[in-house]
Design a protein around this nucleic acid. Sequence first.
DNA 1: ATGAAAGCGCTAACAC
DNA 2: GTGTTAGCGCTTTCAT
Lengths: 336, 336
Amino acid sequence: MVTIKDVARAAGVSTATISRVVHNGGNVGDECRARVKKIIEEMGYRPNSNAQALVNRSSKTIGIVTPKLSMSFFGSLASGVEKAAREINYKLLMTNSLYEKETEQAAIDSLREHNCKSIIIHSDYSDEKTLAKLAKEIPGLVVINRFLPSLANRCVWLDNVSGGQQIGQYLLEKGHKEFAVVTSVYKNRDPDLRVQGLLKALEDEGITIPSSLIAQSTSNMEGGALAARALIESGKKFTAVVAYNDLMAVGLMNELQDQGIRVPEDVSVVGFDNLDIANACRPRLTTMCYPIEEMAAYATELSIELAQENKKLAQKTHLFMPTLIERNSVRDLTQK
Amino acid sequence: MVTIKDVARAAGVSTATISRVVHNGGNVGDECRARVKKIIEEMGYRPNSNAQALVNRSSKTIGIVTPKLSMSFFGSLASGVEKAAREINYKLLMTNSLYEKETEQAAIDSLREHNCKSIIIHSDYSDEKTLAKLAKEIPGLVVINRFLPSLANRCVWLDNVSGGQQIGQYLLEKGHKEFAVVTSVYKNRDPDLRVQGLLKALEDEGITIPSSLIAQSTSNMEGGALAARALIESGKKFTAVVAYNDLMAVGLMNELQDQGIRVPEDVSVVGFDNLDIANACRPRLTTMCYPIEEMAAYATELSIELAQENKKLAQKTHLFMPTLIERNSVRDLTQK
DNA sequence: ATGAAAGCGCTAACAC
DNA sequence: GTGTTAGCGCTTTCAT
């Protein structure tokens, strides 16, 4: 391993000078700078980032804590962070929290040991107090996918209520009047918010959803299939069902179709997230786009800014809007 | 931030002693050890891993280089690594190579700057020479998903030929005699190997595939759809098509069905990878399981062992077998 | 059993 | 414009 001393010796200058040219600092003669640069190149010198982090009390890494990287949604999140991080030459430190409170805490701790001053967390467990305390110690902490009033300027989140509302309005426009909902037992608040938005939209038209047509299940394909059965068994009629997310929507659609119910001819389905899967299933799924990759990239930039103690951002909030992606899983009832 | 000195002062002992108890080293009195432990706990002391990495010349991180984290396959890979890494208290440093040679190199370099002695790389570009040179400098380098003879003991790979062969045999058993192939222009060698295996299996039965029924395209859903059209336009008959991977297979199936060709009634389709998508599409896709998460976890353990200069492993190779997952996209022609 | 001290590779005052 | 030097937080000989 070639160190700064080796380079200094080879160039016949001090380590301070090497450090200066590495960082494009001033106070180095043109001739000297050129010579050092050449030698660095020749020797293949690369600063040891651990030493840098030690002396700077901050490492050029951005930490990310998500429940499970193998899930498409979180993979996209990580990719968004990585993209933004690479552009400013930061590295990505990753940990899965596995939907467990202790693991989530351990993940954060380990990031801190690494002098990681920027952390993007998709927190499902830690309560507001814990996160608020953390934010005091980690200037670059950013919470993605959740809004905490006391941490308003470090939350990058999605308007789930609007998402639900948009779906409701869209379905109404298409002439639907009998709705069902497939929601999740997921412990964060997104499911409730989305349903809330939906109900709000329907309410304006005086439409309600009977409780037997609100099925709750796990937020994956199996959950969707289970919910489909529950809906069918209720015996109640519905022309459209709104699912918590794409995974549930696809499980639901498939189960419906397996039971001889056509989508969208007999029943329309709408999802949420716009995962790849929404394009792979048949019919293609009409869904709300959750721009997670962009949000993650944005969160990364925000995190870096925050980490440099830039107080200007104190008041700014960071709310993203989901948008409807129209595909083929919804039938237009206004034209027979 | 509480440092080792703070703890030492609070405990009235030297930093050496603290270090000893932190690492459960010997030569510390029982009473003293207990007291220090308590103080560490109280003060919430956590060793600075950058300082540790600096003095140890090695950091407890494992680096991973993959093309694109947002792709399901690589997300699973990363998850496998993370899982194994967390168990031994290692952190994950991630970089995307974006299918570009320079980025791949930059990614490796950046990992080295971090004193990362264990690196798992899904390399699509670097040639064998480059990687061999790298392996000399990075003891824990492991190549996943590719076999390089000169690096045999650090390659964790899949028997793609066997995979293709298994598919061929299975289809043969099901009475298929007219085959088509949808392969990829992907620049690594997997596609060729899989086709090779398939052809080998067919050859034993004296069956060949006309070149007009070997469609080549990009390895995603659109590529699969494109290939489907090419196959149909060839005018040749085929009862089964073998796709390079699940993405292509699903694109292909959907396109076939959109064109009024039923799967599996008219045409059978087989994929490769066993992504989530294979379970989401209709019919559910019969495919080869690529146990990437397990392989990644295995690769991680291997990498750590290698990094501790354990020469014992010099001769061992690490080949995994894909296994057939039977679902509903293949028709049994032997029973009308 | 415990401590003193050197040094890992680097940066940033400060001196010249 | 360039060099000297004092650490950053930690580990590890070597004394005691």
